[in-house]
Amino acid sequence: MSVLSSSIARKVAMALSALFLIIFLIIHLAVNLTSLFSADAFNEASHFMGTNPLIQFAMQPVLIFGVVFHFVMGFVLELRNRGARNVKYAKFNGAASSTWASRNMIISGAVILAFIVLHFIDFWIPELNTKYVLGDMSGVLPGEEGYRYFEELQHKFANPLRVGAYVVAFVLLAIHLMHGFQSAFQSMGFNNKYTGFVKAFGKFYSIVIPLGFIIVALCHHFNH
């Protein structure tokens, strides 16, 4: 892709896909949080998100492209950057000048990718199978009353190993965002008198959003 032939174009593309995913996380968490207060509200929201044509056929493909792009580009950049230093230092004190989070985005990113694979196997692929392979768009289990989404959610969070994996993944997401949030703004050339606010808000977002996902998982695990 010639558009991405320059290093600055690549970092801006990384930043744009990151900001898109940052906004997506807020929407996803908002739907998840409804499950703590009302099974009906969660069912309604899930059914709407799962069957609305605009979300399913316009926004979902964009989201998948954003996720895949961010991961592929992340790995490509990591490989290129490793190649830019062909002989390693005998001693490299990275901690003296930068944070662990900023130096290890590839590690936190790889854990998040592993989580997304698990997440797809858990929720997304069965969902696609039910709706588009089996053709059941009703959102209702055969022979039962009411929507199935809340029931499925509780079932998934019964297994402590899965909940543990979710918690670890979201801690790594928090670490990823600790650097990534402000970094995305810097990449797009945003570094001015508001940068202090962006950094502070980035820290707040990096803790609150992953913590929200963790709370939802733990609540369903212990209240089941």
Binding site: S7, R10, K11, L77, R80, N81, G83, A84, R85, G94, A96, S97, S98, T99, S102, R103, M105, H179, Q182, S183, Q186, S187
Partner: peptide, 14 residues
């Protein structure tokens, strides 16, 4: 053949 910037900020410190 320089690498891509990932905003670690190490350069500014050093």
């Amino acid at each position: 053949g320089f690498g891509n910037c990932t905003n670690t900020g190490a350069c500014e410190v050093e």
